[in-house]
């Protein structure tokens, strides 16, 4: 599942790169990918590698749409304005504020443990 704004990020993940966009004009970091900076409206940007960690902001345990899956919302350590979603792979349940580490999947997604 990919669109014209997400395709570049998906390719980066497929190459094993953990990146987000950074505005070349004002350095604001953003995710999901968007062509225009919402702060300064520049459309000049680059993919910025960041530490593939974050903190658990929230999580659910699904019983209906993806039964048995724990899905986490993670705020990135080096880009606190950026939030990513993914499956939680650790043995124990997540807790708020816990550090999460990104896991690259075979199908070019990011999960967490």
């Amino acid at each position: 599942m990919s669109d014209r704004d997400s395709a570049g990020w998906r390719s980066a993940v497929a190459n094993g790169d953990f990146v987000i966009q950074q505005c070349s004009t004002c350095d604001t970091r953003r995710f999901p990918p968007r062509e225009f900076c919402s702060v300064c409206h520049s459309r000049t940007w680059q993919w910025q590698p960041v530490e593939p960690t974050g903190t658990i902001e929230s999580w659910i345990v699904d019983h209906t749409f993806a039964p048995g899956t724990t899905i986490v919302m993670v705020r990135l350590t080096n880009a606190p304005t950026c939030v990513m979603y993914g499956r939680w792979l650790a043995e124990t349940a997540p807790s708020a504020g816990q550090t999460a580490h990104a896991v690259f999947t075979d199908d070019a997604l990011i999960d967490w443990h």
């Binding site: 997400s6 929230s58 749409f65 899905i71 919302m73 708020a96």
Partner: peptide, 29 residues
């Protein structure tokens, strides 16, 4: 929403899940 491209592949697809996510944050905080 365009954001779905970054959510749906993980099984995060339904309003019930999204509101559950926000509810958990409120419970935690």
């Amino acid at each position: 929403a365009p954001e779905a491209a970054f959510q749906a592949p993980y099984g995060y697809v339904a309003p019930a899940q999204m509101y559950a996510m926000y509810a958990r944050a409120h419970m935690t905080k």
